[in-house]
Every structure is written in C-alpha cells, then in structure tokens.
C-alpha cells in the first residue's frame, strides 16, 4: 500500500499560563518536516506560542480502564539507563477539558516505570488517560524560530468571522420588514 509517511503527535501551547496540549497529529517523513507540518496544519489561527512533535510510536499510553488490568506492570524492563519522561493527562470530559495536557516530568528507566512513578507523583483524581513520552523523543521548535512560525497567524484577519459582519445587515432587513407588516 501507498506510503503516507509516519505519524507524529502534535502538542501546542496556546497561552503562557497553559501547558502544552495534544492538538492532533501530522504525517511527515522526518522530524523537521513534522514540525513544519504541525505549524502549517495547526497554526493557521493565532493561538500558538510553542509546538512539540513526537513520533507516535514513542508514546506509551494507558486509559484508566486499561490501568485496571495490571499486566502492563509486568511488561516492565528496567534495562536502559534512567532518563526523563514527560507525563500527560486527560483531566476531564467537557469540551474544554477533554484534551491530553502536559502535567510534569519524572525520571525512570522505562516507560512503564515512568507511568508507575507518575501515578504516585501526580494527582490521579479525574484523570482518564495517561501518556508517557521520553523527553529525548520530543522535537521542539527553537525559540528563535517562534516569530516566523507563530506571528503571521495574527495578521490573517480573513480567517476571523468578525471580518464578515452580516448580522447587522440581516437585523436591519428584518426590522424594515416588520415595520412594513405593521
């Protein structure tokens, strides 16, 4: 079958006081193109300060339902050296909360151990999904590239519905018609 390249998960930071959150994914042939594709796909509108991409295969994920089965704990192989893992959670069910967001980091020598430590370290009330990502797998945009990647979206006023003020015209027409009918 035809190649559609690799899948990279994309994380965007929308505001200085908000964590990176999973926006979706992009297909790309390599890391640099993944970062660029993430910019072009997810930063058409002015809401991005920073982008991360991660090859999908580097993500270890468990839903709360999956955690009920303890089998993953026995899959643990502590062979590699300790390294830093990023921990992500989905913390709610409403439209606003339903995204997977970055909550912090742990050191561990396998994704399974990282999850175990994350379960101890981070509040797990109202958590529905856990993602564990080795920090070395994350490709981040350079801070110096941020202006050329993210600023232009602010100028694209044509993507804002306020550039097409149709309501006042329709209201005017409506009141004119009502006056006629009276």
């Amino acid at each position: 079958m035809d190649s559609q390249w690799q899948i990279y998960q994309v994380f965007e930071k929308e505001r200085a006081d908000l964590p990176h959150r999973n926006a979706g994914s992009v297909h790309a042939s390599d890391a640099e193109m993944a970062l660029e594709n993430a910019r072009d796909v997810f930063v058409r509108r002015p809401n991005c300060l920073s982008l991360w991409v991660v090859p999908e295969r580097a993500i270890f994920s468990k839903t709360v339902e999956e955690l009920q089965d303890n089998a993953w704990r026995t899959e643990m192989q502590n062979t590699s050296a300790e390294e830093s893992y990023l921990v992500f959670q989905k913390q709610g069910q409403t439209a606003r909360e339903t995204f997977v967001v970055h909550v912090g980091d742990v050191a561990a020598n396998s994704p399974q151990q990282a999850l175990e430590r994350a379960l101890e370290t981070f509040d797990d009330k109202n958590v529905f999904v856990w993602w564990i990502v080795p920090e070395r797998a994350i490709i981040k945009n350079e801070a110096s590239d941020a202006p050329s990647m993210f600023e232009p979206a602010h100028w694209k006023k044509y993507r804002n519905h306020l550039s097409y003020p149709v309501e006042p015209i329709m209201r005017e027409l409506k009141s004119a018609q009502e006056m006629l009918e009276e």
């Binding site: 559609q4 992009v26 297909h27 790309a28 660029e36 072009d40 796909v41």
Partner: peptide
C-alpha cells in the same frame, strides 16, 4: 501530493 503539504 499529500494533505499536510496541500495545507502548507
């Protein structure tokens, strides 16, 4: 050639 690049 591919959706991502169509957008880019």
């Amino acid at each position: 050639p591919i959706l991502e690049e169509d957008i880019a």
